[in-house]
Structures are given as structure tokens and as C-alpha cells.
Design a protein around this nucleic acid. Structure first.
Lengths: 205, 205
DNA sequence: TGACAATGTTACCGATCGGTACGTATACAT
DNA sequence: ATGTATACGTACCGATCGGTAACATTGTCA
């Protein structure tokens, strides 16, 4: 008889239905572990153990570990665009200020004690194989980010908008990686400053 | 009786000695597989199989898989600085040209069909745990790269040399990641152009 | 209350993980 | 020829990998 009963203070909101309770716990735990330790580093056994469920519960909600990883990344994708659009919406019609706002926040996030980089980028590094479910989500996210950055570069009136958009993407990816490589005090703290310098230089052409 | 005898056309150079022959084959194979597929993705069994040796041979030359990975990265480190210094030596006393030369080559490398990013960066992503043998080598390499880039920024006479040096590092890391994320035609192809723009902007301050 | 579907659990699968105990083959000096 | 050291191979270890079959429990409706 297990001593830890399933407390969980009525996550069952008002109305009935409410799909799998276990699925949410699993995804929550997986998201945390996958992000902090890496997807390959975490086994399904540890996920279900920390989630307080068992393995078949996982495999009824997710067809495989790879698909669970993809689900984690799809959620990451939503949260990413929330953060991105938040910076965009804060400065309507001013793409340069939008970039600056977004990158200022990125710069701060990368300095936080247990920052572990971009979940998308990390997943692509862990799964170089084309077509892997996790990688597919990651690549789609990056393609869209590139598209939007280039569009913003156009809106800024850059001479070579594609180059500027790509340059911003390089700085952003560099910040993600440097954040987890150097920790606080690393190069990522200057990402907003460098981006603005690059924008300035690109507009004068 | 195995049919494949140990041919190996006299890798035994002139003088005697020549420590374990197996160790070299193992490291060669490990380097290729670790780089292309990732360290966690490759098991020691596959390494010894492709190297045509057996597991005890691996563990007589390397204390553990983690240390084998560290050895792979130490070799990667040497080759990296060879490439870096090659660009530096090609333009004595002209740090801006040195950077441009190095990044032009990086930009080209990232466009190659089976480019898989920087082995150092990838290893750090795969092993976020502090103190892991592979991560130790990776972090040391990045710290040194940062130091040299900042020194070059000073030599260029940048107003804020540390910021420029870090900005260049961000672009470089971004190129490594983008190269494997987007493949040919990705943002990494513009790394040299963007770096020069950033340098230009940083010198005018 | 009874039926049904959704969710939970126990116990297990073959494959592979990193790593090792122990015997064998080969090279060289005497 | 024979001793000795060193490099290599056979066979195996327990643990963990991702995944599943069969069964028990629960909640929700009529």
C-alpha cells in the first residue's frame, strides 16, 4: 500500500470531462526534466516516477517517448511565441524597439542561475537525425523565427534585410548557447546591446 | 577463426614502440560517431564494433566512455585552434582581417552537407552537469575563445572591446547552431558579413 | 444500480547500456 | 627454446533502456 496518496487539490475544474489527469502531470514533469537535463538523459521510468504515475499511463497519452518530447516542444513553442509577442505588442509599429525589448528579456533570462538554453535548440542538437519528431518541431520553430526576424528587418528599412534578420538570429542563438555555457556574466548579457549596434549599422547602409 | 586479419598497412612508423594500435582506431571512430550523431546517441559497443576491436581494448586505453568523449574533445580543441590560428597567421597585426578570414571559413563550413555544428558546443548541450569530463573540456575551450576575441577587439581599438568581443562570440555560436539547424542557405552563411558590420559599428563609437 | 469507458496498477519483455573478470595470442630479450 | 610483458579477445555482469499484456479501479452517465 503506497503511502503517498494522490492528493492533487481538485485540479478537476468546475465542469465535467477533463481529459487525462495523468497526462498533464506527465507532461509537466517531462517538460522540467527534459529542459534541465536533456531529453536523452531522462528515461521514461524517471518521468513516471517523479510524476507519481506508472508507465502505461504515459503510453496511453503519448505514443512514444519521442512523441512526448515533441509534445514538450510544442508547449515550449507556444510559450516562446507568447514571450516574443509580448515584446512585439509592447511597441506597436516599432520593430527596432520590439527587438530590443525581446532581447533585453532574453539577456536577462540567460543570466538566471539555472538557465539551460533554448529547449528547441537543445533538442535539435540532441537529435540531429532528420525527421525525428522532436527535431521537426524545433526546426519549424526556428524557420518561423527566421521569417519573422527578416520581416522585422524589412520593416526597419534595412538595406539588406535578410542579412540583418539572419544576423539577429545568429545573436539570439548565440545568446541561448552562451547562456548555458558561461552562466551569469557571460557574453549573452550583451546580446541586446550588440543587436542594437548591428541594427544601427545595417540601417545606415 | 576471424576472416578479417589485422591488415593495417604498417601504421607502425619507423621507430619501435608505438603505443596501443587499438586506441587510435577507437578514437578515430569515436570522433566521427560522436560528432555526427552525438555522444549520448552512441554506445561503446557500436564504437568498438566499427573500430574492429573489442570492448576491453577500449577500457584499457580509456577509463570510461566519458573520458573517451573528453579525449575526443581535446583532439577537437587542438584542431579548432589550428583553424583559428591559421586565419590569424594569415593576417599578422590585422585583427579585423583575422576575424573576417576565420568567419568566412566558418560560414563555408556551416554550409557543408553534413555539418553538425561545433563539437564543443554540442557536448556542452548534451552534458549540462557541471564537472562532467566532456563539459570541462568544452567550457575551457569557450573561455579561451572568449578571451582571445576580447583581446582582438581591444587590438581593433573598439570603444567597448568586451562587448564587441562578446558580440563576435555570439555570432560565432549562432553560426554553429544555425548551421546544423538550417543546413545550407541558413543564417550562418552571413556570419562574416554580420560580424564585419558589428565591428564597423563598434569602431565608430 | 448497472453499464461503460477512462484511467490506474502489477509484472514483465527483449535490447542495449557502460563496464569487467579472465583466458589467449603475440613480440622481444635472454 | 623459454620467460616475460604487453596487447587483445571471449564471455559475462547488473542496471537501465523504451515499451507492453493483462488486470483492477474509478468516474459518469442512464
Amino acid at each position: 500500500m503506497p503511502t503517498d496518496k494522490n492528493i492533487e487539490p481538485t485540479i478537476n475544474d468546475g465542469h465535467a470531462s477533463a481529459p487525462p489527469r495523468a497526462a498533464k502531470k506527465i507532461l509537466d514533469v517531462a517538460r522540467d526534466l527534459f529542459y534541465r537535463q536533456g531529453i536523452r538523459a531522462i528515461g521514461v521510468d524517471e518521468i513516471v516516477r517523479r510524476a507519481g504515475v506508472t508507465k502505461p499511463s504515459l503510453y496511453r497519452s503519448f505514443p512514444s517517448k519521442d512523441e512526448l518530447a515533441a509534445s514538450y516542444l510544442r508547449q515550449y513553442d507556444l510559450e516562446f511565441w507568447d514571450r516574443f509577442d509580448e515584446a512585439v505588442d509592447a511597441h506597436p509599429g516599432d520593430p527596432r524597439a520590439q527587438i530590443k525589448a525581446f532581447l533585453t528579456r532574453v539577456g536577462k533570462r540567460t543570466q538566471m542561475p539555472q538557465y539551460r538554453g533554448c529547449g528547441m535548440t537543445n533538442a535539435a542538437v540532441e537529435y540531429p537525425e532528420r525527421g525525428h519528431p522532436a527535431r521537426v518541431v524545433s526546426e519549424a520553430n526556428k524557420q518561423e523565427l527566421r521569417r519573422r526576424l527578416r520581416a522585422m528587418a524589412v520593416a526597419m528599412g534595412a538595406g539588406d534585410a535578410d542579412t540583418l534578420g539572419d544576423g539577429l538570429l545568429l545573436l539570439i542563438e548565440g545568446a541561448y548557447i552562451s547562456g548555458q555555457l558561461f552562466g551569469a556574466g557571460g557574453p549573452a548579457q550583451s546580446v541586446a546591446t550588440n543587436a542594437d549596434l548591428l541594427i544601427e549599422a545595417s540601417l545606415k547602409k
